[in-house]
Design a protein around this nucleic acid. Structure first.
Lengths: 248, 248
DNA sequence: GCAAATTTGTCCGTATGTATC
DNA sequence: AGATACATACGGACAAATTTG
């Protein structure tokens, strides 16, 4: 059946140090770029890819798995293969695992995470308070009210509203990357924090009050007050991480 | 051989909608966490993983491919599988492809990238000028001299020194995540920019002069001057991106 | 609603390339 | 150099999910 010998077909001068599946990965990438496909567009079926790229189904499938992990490709069982959403899901996966694998000092990951998030919002203070429209500020206020309503038992709604609040804070700046990074860091924090005995919602009342203060600062276009409110908001988060670290 | 029927072995109350390979992914992750393995530590061989997780080679291999894409697992052909370095390589891959898939307006990706990098360095201005030691400043100066020496022909050395310069600028802050993100963005920029007709090294002399100015600002612990030098450094980069966008 | 067709998911057996001792 | 252990790759078969007639 001349199985492994099939690769002699490619007349490469340089020895093919690259695994075949990597060539398939590059081939699928090139196909998407060449045809200028968009997220959601269909890709050829596995047999078609096998023929087009000269690889067995196993190799093609492994390549698809790699591209799926990077959200470059999306697969629907029994339906087909499509161009992925190109999200930052791989970053979330990677960072989450790094946070969970904390050996001794890995509260550093969480600390770094929060610091970058705060840097985003504080560094963009002027642009945030000048850019956000009245409607957007109203929507932020609505999210804070949602947090107030969720309150005691329903931690889920509280967390979701909190995430949406900080996402919409940076979204109007027009920097999609920053918004997606901020959201990604939040997702990592939510997953990792409970495993490290970092209590995320110890003082919900104080958190809500701080969010109110942030909204007011945006409404009055007061960048300095906005930055001050952010500091007060992030301080207890940093403190909780430090406390958890001290407990070990 | 009752192939697919083997999954009935797992007595799950909830219907197992998850693909088997995803269970294998989770199983390998759990194995690493349970045994508190570190990057470089060996993992069981494929046959061992098959037996331990109750899956075929195909499923185990596909799971390994996913974990390899996330740099959670690293494979050395003919040697074995090991815990990966948990780098941000997946972010680089993902963002690079997003940048290359630019449909019409995707200079936005590059613009966002540069903006975040500048935010890192400007937002950390005070800490950078107060934290860096004399030796570190000398090393930065050495990198600028390297850029000066690389100059005309050798773009490679120039680019490497430039990358090292900005990496070491934020490295001493103790926020590994920020440093890795900054480096990752740089890698994406270097790969994507040439494909978009963004000339990265148009005025090397001006770039070198700006780096000199940045070093001087750090040496004199002048945060304001440091921020001003950064603005002047990033302005032409933004301009080049805007020009390339206009050309389309 | 059902059966067929399409497509991805999983399994097995085998052969080959690579690194180590 | 030979032997061993391991990952890489192939091909074929069957299972499961989805769409369509």
């Amino acid at each position: 059946m001349e199985q492994g010998a099939a690769r002699v077909v490619t007349p490469e001068l340089k020895p093919v140090r690259q695994p075949l599946r990597q060539e398939v990965v590059d081939g699928i990438k090139a196909y998407i770029l060449r045809n200028k496909l968009r997220p959601g567009d269909p890709l050829p079926t596995e047999p078609k890819l096998c023929e087009a790229l000269g690889a067995s189904r196993s190799s093609v499938r492994e390549a698809i798995r790699i591209l799926t992990a990077l959200d470059i490709v999306e697969v629907r069982h029994g339906h087909g293969t499509y161009v992925g959403r190109l999200s930052l899901s791989a970053l979330v996966e990677s960072l989450t695992f790094r946070g969970l694998l904390s050996p001794d000092d890995d509260f550093q990951v969480m600390s770094d995470l929060i610091e970058v998030r705060e840097l985003f919002e504080r560094g963009m203070a002027e642009r945030i308070v000048t850019t956000l429209t009245g409607d957007q500020v109203d929507y932020l206020q609505g999210l804070v009210d949602t947090m107030r309503g969720a309150g005691a038992g329903d931690g889920h709604g509280f967390v979701d509203a909190d995430r949406a609040f900080h996402t919409l804070l940076v979204a109007p700046l027009g920097n999609d990357l920053m918004g997606q990074l901020s959201a990604a860091f939040w997702d990592v924090y939510v997953v990792v924090a409970p495993h490290l005995d970092v209590f995320t919602h110890e003082h919900e009342a104080a958190t809500i009050a701080n969010h109110d203060r942030i909204v007011d600062a945006v409404r009055t276009r007061d960048a300095a007050e906005f930055a001050a409110a952010l500091s007060e908001h992030y301080a207890p988060v940093r403190r909780r991480i430090a406390e958890a670290r001290a407990r070990r």
